[in-house]
């Protein structure tokens, strides 16, 4: 692991995360996770909540070279609290040599992070728990076949929104919810932008307290696209301004990358079957316009 990652060339290619997992081919979440793991290293305990990545460890197979604990959907931050408290108690009472200490990591999908686990997350931040929360956000309950979750974007079709207008709600602002708690660090990342991701993980790793890494996870199965397109769709999410790459630190939000020129959101939407109803059998200009306006308004506020 390098001391500082500045260029693509500096990215570790250690691949600490083992191959052979049952994640779908082209999984954007796994793409982010293995990059994250290479920076965090194996002195980690991943406390996991119910979601796609529960299946990373299916007895007797695990891709982790460090530790792992599966809890349940709502309570991974509470599991992290128990582990962190226990490690602290062992360190203080000198029953654990400092070199045996572990970073406490929570790993969940958007279903847990935006919804069922939000109460236990908020409380863990309130308690100033020293933990890093990694959310792989594929914008739906992917493990059960992509029903709408609180992270589903407006107008996307899901297994529970099959009509011509798709999901009527709007993606919840988890970044903002975290930032409102004034934690140590919040950052959005995407596996398709590995340099930005690695820098943020390095920064997160150097800090203490509650930290969130929110990774948009292009999902070939749930979003309906060819797995080969996984990275290109991720890049388009950034270029079109759908997925702002940003950080919250020291009370301030910083946008690491302001897309200029910003690609029309259509270019992003067209790549995915979940938005196909916006283009066929006929273009839904009203809905497309609404989605674009939302993004324009976001960036107008950023650039003010």
């Amino acid at each position: 692991m390098s001391d500082a990652i500045r260029r693509m060339k500096d990215l570790p290619s250690t691949h600490l995360l083992g191959t052979g997992t049952p994640m779908c081919a082209g999984c954007g979440g796994l793409e982010a996770l293995h990059q994250i793991y290479d920076v965090l290293g194996t002195n980690t305990v991943f406390v996991n909540a119910a979601g796609c990545m529960t299946l990373l460890s299916v007895y007797p197979f695990t891709p982790f070279r460090g530790s792992w604990l599966y809890t349940a959907m709502a309570c991974a931050p509470a599991g992290a609290q128990g582990v962190r408290d226990a490690l602290d108690i062992l360190l203080t009472s000198k029953r654990l040599p400092p070199e045996d200490d572990l970073q406490t990591i929570v790993l969940t999908g958007d279903g847990a992070a935006y919804g069922m686990g939000l109460s236990s997350t908020s409380a863990a931040i309130d308690r100033n728990l020293d933990f890093l929360y990694i959310c792989y956000d594929n914008e739906g309950y992917g493990n059960t076949g992509q029903q709408s979750s609180p992270a589903t974007p407006h107008a996307a079709q899901t297994a529970t929104n099959t009509g011509s207008r798709g999901f009527p709600g709007y993606k919840k602002d988890l970044f903002g919810i975290w930032a409102a708690h004034r934690p140590a660090y919040v950052a959005t990342v995407i596996g398709a932008e590995p340099l930005d991701l690695a820098k943020k993980i390095e920064k997160a790793k150097s800090l203490r307290g509650p930290r969130l890494i929110l990774a948009l996870a292009p999902c070939p199965t749930g979003w309906d696209f060819d797995p080969a397109e996984s990275v290109e769709i991720g890049r388009l999410a950034v270029r079109s301004g759908v997925w702002p790459l940003k950080e919250y630190i020291d009370g301030k939000v910083i946008h690491n990358h302001v897309p200029h020129p910003r690609a029309p959101v259509e270019e992003y939407l067209k790549t995915q079957g979940r938005f196909a109803h916006l283009f066929s059998p006929e273009r839904n200009d009203a809905l497309l316009g609404e989605i674009q306006a939302h993004i324009d308004a976001y960036w107008a506020a950023v650039n003010k």
Binding site: S13, T19, G191, P227
Partner: peptide, 30 residues
């Protein structure tokens, strides 16, 4: 390629060239 392969199935050989681990490559074609 080695970083973007979701499955960690492209390693870097001693000569600096990438090598695909066909035992584990799921064929996503990223």
């Amino acid at each position: 390629c080695s970083t973007l392969c979701p499955d960690s199935a492209i390693h870097v050989r001693a000569d600096g060239a990438p090598e695909i681990d066909y035992e584990h490559c799921k064929g996503c074609l990223v």
